[in-house]
């Protein structure tokens, strides 16, 4: 069993095709994947289960990704220390600054290759 096979990743994105694309990339590397449709659902899941990484979109209904990250970082350990990788079409410096200020560990701009996603997941999960 590889390191990745023990790692749980939460994908938070309102776009079904995007979630499917990420899931395919991550499961091909052996990661276990859980999905949430927006920040609120992501919070519910991250409170119920420990994740090695959360991959989070910025623009989502009900709760956006920046608010999700800020809320997670304000929670108690160990939830607050969950690594968070943000991926968005928003490529402006203010968007990246907002993500970092909220507490995201890293910010990737779409489009993203599946191999690249899996590589970054491995880096932030410590599954290299």
């Amino acid at each position: 069993m590889t390191d990745a096979a023990k790692k749980q990743i939460l994908v938070v994105d309102d776009a079904a095709l995007v979630r499917t694309y990420y899931r395919a990339a991550l499961e091909a590397r052996g990661f276990k994947v859980e999905e949430a449709l927006n920040g609120l659902e992501g919070l519910e899941k991250i409170l119920l289960q420990s994740f090695d990484l959360a991959i989070v979109d910025v623009n989502m209904p009900q709760m956006d990704g920046i608010t999700f990250v800020r809320t997670v970082r304000a929670m108690e350990l160990p939830v607050s220390s969950t690594p968070i990788l943000m991926i968005s079409t928003e490529a402006g410096p203010q968007d990246i600054a907002a993500a970092r200020q909220a507490g995201a560990n890293y910010y990737l701009v779409k489009p993203i290759k599946q191999d690249t996603l899996a590589e970054f997941a491995a880096i932030f999960c410590g599954a290299h």
């Binding site: 623009n59 709760m63 956006d64 608010t67 203010q94 968007d95 907002a98």
Partner: peptide, 15 residues
């Protein structure tokens, strides 16, 4: 808006 929460709230209202 530069604020993601504002964009989300606006989009939810329009939807």
């Amino acid at each position: 808006s530069d604020d993601a929460a504002q964009r989300t709230a606006a989009l939810d209202a329009l939807k």
